[in-house]
């Protein structure tokens, strides 16, 4: 037993943390910056996973594949396909209030799950895709995990830096302006539908990237590998708990929620088998309750978005100023 074996579980946890961090940043672009309610992010995640799996595996009888592309191409493909699927969805729904987008994205996720389950030629249906390669996957198990953590961590850092840069660039300020006061932004000549669509596609592409990172870790993907409600919900609670609109916040949220989720699993696994299964649902109940508690007592999240206030103007004193608002669109009736 060498020292590396003790790192296996923490490393495994941290890889997932990075994957969820990527999902959380994707959702933060959609919800935090643009105020778009994506309730089907598991669908985009699955699309990314399947795309990368199809692009990087070798020939298999009866399904599309045999491209044998290297890992970075798989990830790029995952991002492109997820982003492209987001395009028509955004085109149809972004004209309306975000509830419509939410219900339509639930439908999109359902459609993607059904396609993955049914279309033999594309996804090998219920048997799924196996033998997905992993970079440096030929090393001994512990080293390979560590190497993959380094790769995923590096990708997450790059994503974070790029998105942070984008958020502080004029694009990010414009997105916040659209989110907080759509009419004013239109009056300033901003093309609101196009900008929203950009944010929606960019966020979905990052969810696809996360899916790609997941499939190279798991090395196999089946339609039931992803519990859509659970994945979607965990990411939402990460974003809201951490602080929507703040990338550092949502990463913090990803770390906290994933630790809670995994630690509670360790606890419930000690229970006798007949309780252990039910305990999984108990944990889901607690995650739902956590969301309610956050919304009630700290709706702005642990690390709220930093908003620059206008220096001593009317707006700074108005009741809709900092205290009363939450990082969300003010565009309802």
């Amino acid at each position: 037993m060498d020292w590396l074996s003790f790192t296996i579980y923490p490393v495994y946890l941290m890889i997932f943390m990075c994957i969820y961090g990527c999902l959380a940043i994707g959702l933060n672009i959609q919800w935090g910056y643009a105020g778009l309610f994506n309730a089907g992010l598991a669908g985009f995640f699955a699309v990314g996973a399947y795309t990368s799996a199809i692009l990087t595996t070798s020939e298999a009888a009866g399904r599309l594949g045999g491209f044998d592309l290297p890992f970075p191409f798989g990830l790029a493909g995952a991002m492109i396909v997820s982003g492209l699927i987001a395009w028509p969805v955004g085109k149809i729904c972004l004209r309306f209030r975000s509830d419509y987008l939410a219900i339509v994205t639930i439908g999109v996720a359902e459609a993607i799950r059904l396609v993955a389950k049914t279309e033999d030629w594309l996804t090998n249906s219920a048997r799924g895709i196996t033998g997905v390669p992993r970079p440096l996957g030929d090393l001994p198990y512990a080293q390979a995990q560590l190497a993959y953590l380094a790769i995923v961590g590096l990708i997450l850092i790059v994503v974070y830096l790029l998105i942070e840069r984008q958020a502080h660039a004029p694009w990010g300020r414009m997105m916040r302006a659209i989110r907080d006061n759509e009419r004013a932004a239109v009056a300033m000549g901003k093309n609101v539908p196009v900008r929203r669509l950009e944010a929606f596609m960019l966020g979905s592409a990052l969810m696809g990237l996360a899916g790609g990172l997941y499939v190279h870790l798991a090395r196999t993907i089946t339609p039931d590998a992803i519990d859509p409600m659970l994945v979607t919900f965990l990411v939402w609670i990460m974003v809201i708990l951490g602080g929507s609109g703040n990338n550092r916040g949502v990463l913090l949220g990803a770390v906290i929620v994933w630790i809670i989720w995994s630690a509670s699993e360790i606890v419930t696994d000690q229970l006798p088998a007949e309780f252990a299964l039910k305990a999984k649902y108990g944990r889901m109940f607690l995650i739902g309750l956590l969301l309610q508690i956050v919304l009630r007592f700290r709706p702005e999240g642990l690390l709220p978005e930093k908003l620059r206030r206008a220096p001593l103007s009317e707006g700074a004193l108005s009741p809709t100023g900092h205290g009363a608002r939450i990082q969300a669109p003010h565009k309802e009736i």
Binding site: A102, I237, G282, L291, Q292, A328, E332
Partner: peptide, 19 residues
């Protein structure tokens, strides 16, 4: 609050009821 926040809360309630 903005109405969409309640929609998010209802999503959480859905998960709780199902559990």
């Amino acid at each position: 609050m903005p109405k969409i926040i309640t929609t998010i809360a209802s999503f959480g309630v859905a998960l709780m009821l199902r559990s």
